[in-house]
Design a protein around this nucleic acid. Structure first.
Length: 293
DNA sequence: CGCATCCCCTGCCTGC
DNA sequence: TGCAGGCAGGGGATGC
């Protein structure tokens, strides 16, 4: 599932249940995901109270009362669901599993009071680590992260030095976590369409000779901020996903302009283009060759 | 250093 | 119906 809007949606769903809750025990059903679980992982979580559930880029951070931080990444296919609720609340995607999925339930956090927070990840590209709070900022996985596209950190002037001189295509630089934290394949494509910029244009071409941001970069930043805000508001995107009775899954996939829409007409009014799929850095890029320049 | 390619893993869809 | 191949929202390691 997870680019920034999906991770933020998960955070908003879990936070009311986990913040203030005490971990009664943790089941870890295999030795590793992408990385091995840390030594004594379950034991170090047991009895801890979750003080806050926060997010940085595509990472979730559960801050514990001992000063430890449980750092979680969902990879390509990671998801959480909650069991033991008397009735669903928040985002419905947190509360649904098909019978055949349970074999990929790798971590179960039992909270005092009876709720279970279950981490499921078929492809196992996700991971969980334990860090000391004071080590987080300098940790290699977090230290290199770029600007958050939510809030006010992301601006054209802040981005200009990071784009300057770069020959890599815009699409690659936009989904580089060291530049902007949280954009992935979907939202990079969608932002470029909104900004009417070709995914093949070089990142450096958006910076003026004097090093300042061009009008195109200003447009791109506005598009990134808008698409992320819109997607969060829609509860993220649910791809190739189950229709669910309560209908509370993320809905942004219905509003994709180009992603996974190869062959469809460009949705921009007055554009007669057709959405094309190309491959960049080994991954699909969807764009309109007519209005994205 | 920057950039492209390959790889990790499972599931699903397509075409034969 | 079975099977092979390609593709999928992640990012790290490698080699040029």
């Amino acid at each position: 599932m997870p680019e920034l809007p999906e991770v933020e949606t998960v955070r908003r769903g879990l936070a009311p249940l986990m913040e203030g809750a005490v971990v009664a025990r943790v089941e870890v059903r295999r030795p590793d995901l992408r990385f091995p679980f840390p030594p004594r992982f379950a034991a170090r979580l047991k009895g801890r109270r979750v003080e806050a559930l926060s997010r940085r880029g595509k990472y979730l951070l559960a801050e514990l009362d001992t000063g430890l931080v449980l750092l979680m990444h969902l990879g390509m296919s990671g998801s959480f669901r909650v069991e033991g609720l008397s009735q669903p609340v928040g985002n419905g995607s947190l509360y649904y599993a098909r019978a055949k999925d349970v074999g990929h339930d790798h971590v179960v956090m039992h909270l005092q009071g009876g709720l279970r927070v279950v981490y499921n990840d078929p492809r196992r590209f996700g991971f969980m680590l334990l860090l000391r709070r004071e080590d987080c900022e300098a940790h290699p996985l977090l230290a290199g992260l770029g600007l958050e596209p939510t809030g006010n950190a992301l601006s054209a002037e802040a981005l200009a030095p990071r784009f300057a001189g770069r020959a890599a295509p815009l699409k690659a630089v936009l989904s580089d976590q060291r530049v902007i934290a949280g954009l992935g394949n979907i939202y990079a494509c969608e932002a470029l369409w909104r900004a009417r910029l070709s995914p093949r244009r070089t990142a450096g071409s958006l910076v003026r000779a004097d090093g300042r941001a061009s009008e195109r970069l200003v447009r791109l930043v506005a598009a990134v901020r808008a698409v992320i805000a819109d997607a969060i508001e829609a509860g993220g995107s649910s791809l190739r996903d189950h229709v669910q009775a309560d209908g509370t899954l993320g809905l942004f996939q219905n509003r994709f302009a180009v992603y996974d829409r190869e062959g469809e007409p460009c949705p921009r009014r007055s554009c007669r283009g057709v959405v094309r799929r190309i491959v960049q850095s080994g991954r699909s890029t969807f764009h309109c060759p007519l209005c994205q320049r």
